[in-house]
Simulated scan of single mutants.
Amino acid sequence: MPNQRITGLTSEQFATLLTALKNHLTWNKPAEKPHKLTLTQALKMTLIYHRHNITEELLASIFSVSQPTVSRTITSIEKALARVLKPLMKPMESALKTPGS
């Protein structure tokens, strides 16, 4: 349960989301400098940022990276999540439409 309090997701939900991200995102590309955080850490950081509305400076301290690294990481994960979750939004949008609208 500690993950759920921190990220808002159960361990199973977090694992499912992480797997979906891995299928849509190449986190460490061979020709590029490796990220300072693993994909798991990056996802956790992004979820904590949004759930608890804490500063990038505090996240930098918690994860032992710089504030610019936090900013770049959150931006990358947000973009990837938008792509991963987009197919799920269509059925929700259709279900929310009222007849005659």
Rank of each mutant, 00 (worst) to 15 (best):
V70K: 13
K33W: 04
M45Y: 06
T69G: 09
H52M: 07
H50N: 12
R5L: 06
I6S: 06
T7F: 00
P68M: 12
N23M: 10
L17D: 02
S11P: 02
T55N: 03
E57D: 13
H24P: 01
I54Q: 14
M89D: 04
V65P: 01
P87R: 04
S64P: 02
I77P: 02
A80I: 08
L47K: 04
Q13C: 02
T75V: 14
A42I: 01
F63C: 06
P68R: 13
P34Y: 03
G100A: 09
K22G: 03
M1L: 10
F14L: 04
S94C: 04
K97Y: 00
T38C: 01
E12P: 00
E78V: 11
S61W: 12
S66Q: 14
S61D: 14
Q4K: 09
L47S: 02
T69M: 05
A82G: 09
K29T: 01
G100H: 05
P30T: 11
P30L: 11
I77K: 14
Y49G: 00
P30M: 04
V65Y: 02
L21W: 15
T75I: 10
L88F: 14
T10E: 01
K33T: 06
A15V: 04
E12W: 07
P91V: 10
L59M: 07
Q41A: 05
L21H: 12
Q67R: 15
L88C: 00
N28L: 01
T40S: 10
T73L: 15
R72C: 15
A15K: 10
N23V: 03
A82V: 12
S61H: 13
S66K: 12
S11I: 07
T73R: 15
N28A: 05
T98P: 00
T38H: 00
S11H: 07
T26A: 14
M92V: 05
P87S: 03
I54E: 11
S11Y: 09
L43K: 07
N23I: 03
T19Y: 08
S94M: 11
L25W: 11
L59V: 07
P99M: 09
R72I: 12
T98A: 11
E57M: 11
E32T: 10
I6H: 04
T73W: 15
F14D: 00
P91D: 06
H35F: 06
I74F: 03
L59H: 11
M45P: 05
P87L: 12
L17R: 11
R5E: 07
L58C: 03
K97I: 01
A31K: 06
P87D: 06
K44R: 08
T75Q: 13
I6E: 12
E56G: 11
